[in-house]
Amino acid sequence: MRYQRMLVPVLTLVLVMVPVTCAQAQGEEVPHGPTFAARALQALIDGIQFGVIIAITSVGLSLIFGTIHLINFAHGEFVTIGATFAFFLNVSPAGPGWHLIPAALAAVVFGALLGGAVDRGIWRPLRARGTGLINMFIVTIGLSLLLRHVVLVLYGTRPASYAQYDIQSALDLGPAGITPRDLTVTLLSVLVLLGTAALLQKTRIGTAVRAVSANRDLAEASGIDVQRVVLFVWMLGGGLAALGGVFFGLVEIVTWDMGFKLLLLMFAGIILGGLGSAYGAMVGSLVIGIVAQMSTLWFPVDLQYAWALLVLILVLLVRPQGILGRAERVG
């Protein structure tokens, strides 16, 4: 992962943003009625917003895969737990009734702690027992079932919104619109993604993470504390997933199974971007978000996730290593 690799996500963002602005410029000449162009623009904006949120959640999933080759089927639950924990602090009558911003920060910390706890409490003992990787996949399934239904018991089945920023009028962008809330969430997500990239690129621990992803044995031999790196990755993944959960709950709605539904889109994103690559996960997720939203231009809304998953299968047919993945043997 050299600097050139960072170029690709940046360029993709530029490539996406340019048509947006162009479409906007054109759109202004058509003041009335939701033309196709206007709807396309709206879908694109929604898609980018959706995509960056998926990206936040999937970076951790991809990093975990990169460092310990584990597919964490419970990653979606980290998302749900972040969203519902913030909900508890923010809205729940039993909670302290905090404003959403401190509640969200607390949820991120809680997510990171949960990630760390899961590594210390489950994965490290299992690794020490010599449990095989395939069996570990199955353990993540068990963990997913456990966490999801604990949330179900604690949170209930009712979808709900946060106390703040619930209903806003959209900023008028000519033919399309975006609420200040959604705009803020999108920009914050991009910032978080850039921050994560900088963390991986510039800091000691980030370098260590990349070293372990590239070659675990070599990293260990050169004195990197792999256990610590793995713990860090779980905490980072947990925290980011929780943040993504709050964001998703904010722009959509909080439900007990939101994370599990997002999980499949995260998978699509990280396979599209190349399994194990953090930047790939970002780009892939963005594409998946856009595909999901743009599909609603032609197809029913209830199929939008399905198209995103079909993209996943198509990618495997054409370029299994993903957009940014190395052309190594994957099978």
Partner: peptide
């Protein structure tokens, strides 16, 4: 492909079908 790809694709395919 490797086993992990099959795992992800099959779970995605099942869910896509349902949708």
């Amino acid at each position: 492909l490797r086993a992990d790809y099959l795992a992800i694709t099959t779970i995605a395919a099942g869910e896509t079908l349902r949708l």
